[in-house]
Nucleic acid binder design. Structure first.
Lengths: 229, 229
DNA sequence: CGTGCGTTTGAGTGAATTCAACGGCTGTGG
DNA sequence: CCACAGCCGTTGAATTCACTCAAACGCACG
């Protein structure tokens, strides 16, 4: 659940996390992070793998997945350009990460970051603060998964993506319907039906299946009871 | 989702967290934490309240709740004797906390803990590690809420409580059925039906409504696909 | 022009919910 | 000591929302 947007990270006085700044996440720690490319659906790391690295999406999008033995899948989070992930692991990754689209990713050794934390407590405290934030988001997602209707989940998702995207009211979704369904704890059919229903109501427009236009944000917001500040 | 059991905390080389040791959580930081009593259903802190304290359950049990405007409720976690909670908040609490039973709770100023972290990076790194662990648990709960059946949720819950309790196969549940339902994203009726169904199968015994005996642990474990290590 | 993938749409099913009633325990007051 | 009220938990019946199964559509690509 760690998806530090550049703007969030800007509040952290440890350097430039911003994706558009010259300094990448890795350089903050004085480490030239390796820059890797992943094609669509390529695995960045697997569940159970030792968590030796922390990652930042430079270009593209990444999803984290949990798989059950009978094939049921859950998508824990989506990470977009600028987002940092992989620090939420303990010694081993509790889930796998895969490229949603062709992506470019920077890695930094986890030990390097932990070393900086151990040296500079203030930095560590900032990380802690971030971790707390992401724990809160995890709680919001639990409420969504436990108690919200299909329509509430989908509108929640759209508003979340809109908040993370550059343009407030026009979304280009990098992920397919199956990914969205597994993220929201629904089936692909329910996601599809809910979206077309919203379109028929006039609340959104779907010029292309991966492109969503928020026509009536107030209506969307009234559907999903976002308590969180 | 931070529920550090005494045994978990024992791995942290910053002092004695253990509930049964002489040193309370607070004393680790050289601060005499205030010791408060809460009666059943009393509020420990409210959603939105500034998060100035970190708490440790000395006696009793605590639940954290999120409420939606139409009354739907979600229980984020249960904290039992020895567990620490409240650190998972940012500046303000994202959920409320209430005593499940009459409870005794120690508080420590959050700032004191953050100060220790800022001073001693190693301590902070340990806290970070803990936060990562709890983020992983949050992900496991999301998988449960998103993808598991009622029966899987209930068996998951029973095994979790068994793991946290002293006796491996006999549970005394401090919380009512409604709390369990809101924790698992089910209704009270479904929880009740699932439990009696498990009892009829012979997998568990229910000598009293709050007392559960695990008769066939293997059967329970086979029902819930615990991937997590 | 077909093939394959992703998405939509339809019909029927089902697991969990809602609505409703009942049973059992506890504490209180007559 | 019993009657009663108030919770809490269980059980039953009917409903519903999302799911499963199935088919068709549209688009990109060879």
């Amino acid at each position: 659940m760690l998806h530090w947007k550049a703007d969030t990270a800007a509040a952290i006085p440890i350097g430039a996390f911003a994706e558009n700044s010259s300094g990448s996440f890795g350089e903050v720690f004085g480490i030239a992070g390796a820059r890797l490319r992943f094609e669509r659906n390529a695995e960045v790391f697997a569940e159970g793998e030792p968590a030796d690295y922390v990652y930042q999406v430079v270009r593209g999008a990444v999803r984290t997945c949990k798989l059950m033995s009978d094939g049921r899948r859950h998508v824990g989070a989506f990470y977009l350009a600028g987002d940092v992930f992989g620090l939420e692991a303990g010694e081993a990754h509790g889930f796998s990460a895969e490229a949603v689209t062709a992506s470019e990713i920077v890695l930094v050794r986890r030990s390097a970051i932990l070393a900086v934390c151990a040296r500079d407590g203030a930095v560590a405290a900032q990380f802690l603060e971030q971790a707390a934030l992401h724990l809160q988001r995890a709680h919001d997602r639990m409420l969504l998964l436990a108690r919200k209707s299909a329509q509430e989940r989908v509108t929640d998702f759209l508003l979340e993506m809109a908040a993370r995207s550059a343009h407030a009211s026009s979304l280009e979704l990098p992920m397919c319907r199956q990914d969205i369904a597994d993220y929201l704890g629904l089936t692909i059919e329910t996601v599809s039906r809910t979206l077309t229903s919203l379109e028929r109501q006039g609340t959104i427009g779907i010029p292309a299946s991966r492109r969503i236009v928020l026509r009536d944000r107030a209506a969307l917001e009234s559907m999903n009871d976002r308590i969180a500040a």
